[in-house]
């Protein structure tokens, strides 16, 4: 979903620069105001060092995820948004399934957007905290390299953390 820069009444800059971000996974393009995109340290570095052309290619991030990232950046670039509004908006962005959240945290990490990285990793942490370790293993696609005996031994060593856990 490509979106044109919004005309804000109180925009102070006379000329509004825009950047086009392009997902290299599905070639979706997003036109965003420069000040919105510059919340990404990665993009800022590219722009500052004149490495950015008209279209900035974003590898490994799908259009769906990029749209979430841009939504986050837009919210946080709005100077009139209150802390409460931002909190609510952030909560809405991360109200996703765990696989989307993992993609989002990877995107936030790649684009170097600290705030988004924080809210997303917190949400992942909250989503896995009540899960049995077998489920977490599956979600993150981790190979179980313990033998059953080794796993039982690790569990026994940390017995206190399993007490009362189904």
């Amino acid at each position: 979903m490509a979106s044109a820069p919004e005309n804000e009444k109180n925009a102070s800059a006379p000329e509004k620069k825009t950047l086009t971000l392009k997902s290299m996974i599905n070639n979706e393009e997003f036109v965003v105001d420069e000040h919105v995109a510059l919340q990404s340290v990665t993009i800022k570095n590219m722009v500052d060092s004149d490495c950015a052309g008209d279209v900035i290619p974003v590898p490994t991030i799908s259009g769906e995820i990029l749209a979430l990232v841009i939504e986050y950046c837009k919210n946080h670039a709005n100077p009139s948004a209150s802390e409460d509004d931002l909190k609510k908006a952030d909560a809405g962005i991360v109200a996703k399934d765990i696989y989307t959240l993992i993609d989002l945290v990877l995107a936030a990490n790649f684009l170097d957007i600290k705030g988004l990285l924080e809210v997303t990793s917190q949400k992942i942490a909250d989503s896995i905290k009540d899960l049995p370790h077998q489920d977490v293993r599956e979600i993150f696609g981790v190979e179980n390299d313990y033998t059953p005996e080794e796993e039982a031994a690790v569990r026994a060593e940390h017995d206190w953390a399993f007490e009362g856990f189904p």
Partner: peptide, 25 residues
């Protein structure tokens, strides 16, 4: 990145997750 996520998980859960794999432990 896993460190960033796991540092936000409560102590009890984090300890349980040592059972996921050797590298996680």
């Amino acid at each position: 990145l896993m460190e960033v996520v796991l540092s936000r998980v409560p102590l009890v859960t984090r300890t349980r997750l040592k059972c996921v794999s050797k590298s996680w432990r």
